[in-house]
Design a protein around this nucleic acid. Structure first.
Length: 297
DNA sequence: CAAGCGACCTGACGGC
DNA sequence: TGCCGTCAGGTCGCTT
């Protein structure tokens, strides 16, 4: 689930505790999540310091002392919680993403026992679509999970200019194209719907129609790139406010519903000023797409 | 090669 | 109340 903004929100929650801490030991309660845990996973991490906690697309990347990179993916239902840092063992809101329901110890799969600060970082994932990998620092860009990742939507690298060669001649619909992590890395089902709504583009439109014959981006492609960046930036900002909500309100919200303009709004009126359309739900490549057939063309 | 689809896994929810 | 079908934020790998 977690798309890029949620992963970034989790990163910001974990960073103050993890960065600079030493991993005293690692407790694994299963041998595999989506994939088997790396060989000698716990042993390779034990005793080492966490130098930084970063992110690439939907991956959390912990830089580990000794030229190791710990890559963590949340899949559909993964979350982290921090235990012990405030003394009582209570979860700390900042790191929780999906665990509004609290004490689901059943699906705690990996526990990082830290010292300085004395805390535990617990990875919980009911569906086990998440995974972890250990990568030699130098090998990041050749690793199968990272080699093919596309443009980050958080910075100014994402532009019509950059997208044009990837969109040119493409018959696939925009929905599928934006979900393709090798083109733009980090978008998921929700924010693709949201970005296309903002850009007033139909999810069914072929991606290639946004590129001119000479290979230059059309104005609509430039606009799409900007709307994607804004959508992601706004969602990251909303992540912050959701965390505050969570802290106060037992995590009842758990996601950013209050921000959605089209996602999950089937049969409700389009929220665009002056548009009288009704949001439709269709299925594209097996997943729900929400859009307004009146203003998205 | 691109595109589509089933598979992986659990839990929540709605209908009967 | 309980059973059954459907759906969910992702992505891998097989088939067309």
């Amino acid at each position: 689930m977690p798309e890029l903004p949620e992963v970034e929100t989790v990163r910001r929650g974990l960073q103050p505790v993890m960065e600079g801490a030493r991993i005293a030991r690692v407790e694994t309660r299963r041998e595999a999540l989506r994939f088997p845990l790396p060989e000698r996973f716990a042993e390779r991490l034990a005793g080492r310091r966490i130098l930084s906690l970063g992110r690439r697309a939907k991956y959390l990347l912990a830089e580990i002392e000794g030229d190791l990179l710990l890559a963590m993916h949340l899949g559909m239902s993964g979350s982290f919680r921090i235990e012990g840092v405030e003394g009582s063992g209570a979860p700390v809101a900042g790191a929780a993403f999906h665990m509004a329901r609290g004490e689901d110890r059943l699906h705690d799969h990996v526990l990082f026992h830290l010292e300085a600060p004395d805390a535990r970082i617990v990875f919980n994932d009911p569906r086990r679509f998440g995974y972890m990998a250990l990568i030699e620092s130098g090998a990041r860009d050749t690793h199968p999970h990272f080699r093919a990742l596309g443009i980050e939507p958080t910075g100014n690298a994402l532009s019509g200019e950059a997208l044009a060669p990837r969109f040119k001649g493409k018959a696939a619909p925009l929905k599928a194209t934006l979900l393709d992590q090798s083109i733009i890395a980090g978008l998921g089902n929700i924010y693709v719907c949201e970005a296309l709504w903002r850009a007033r583009l139909s999810p069914r439109r072929a991606a290639g129609t946004l590129v001119r014959i000479d290979g230059r981006p059309t104005q609509r492609l430039d606009s799409l790139a900007l709307h994607i960046r804004e959508t992601i930036a706004d969602a990251i900002e909303a992540g912050g406010s959701t965390l505050r909500d969570y802290r106060q309100a037992d995590g009842a919200l758990g996601y950013f519903q209050h921000r959605f303009r089209v996602y999950d709004r089937e049969n409700e009126p389009c929220l665009r000023e002056g548009c009288r359309g009704i949001v439709q739900r269709i299925v594209q490549s097996g997943r729900s797409t929400f859009f307004c057939p009146v203003c998205q063309r």
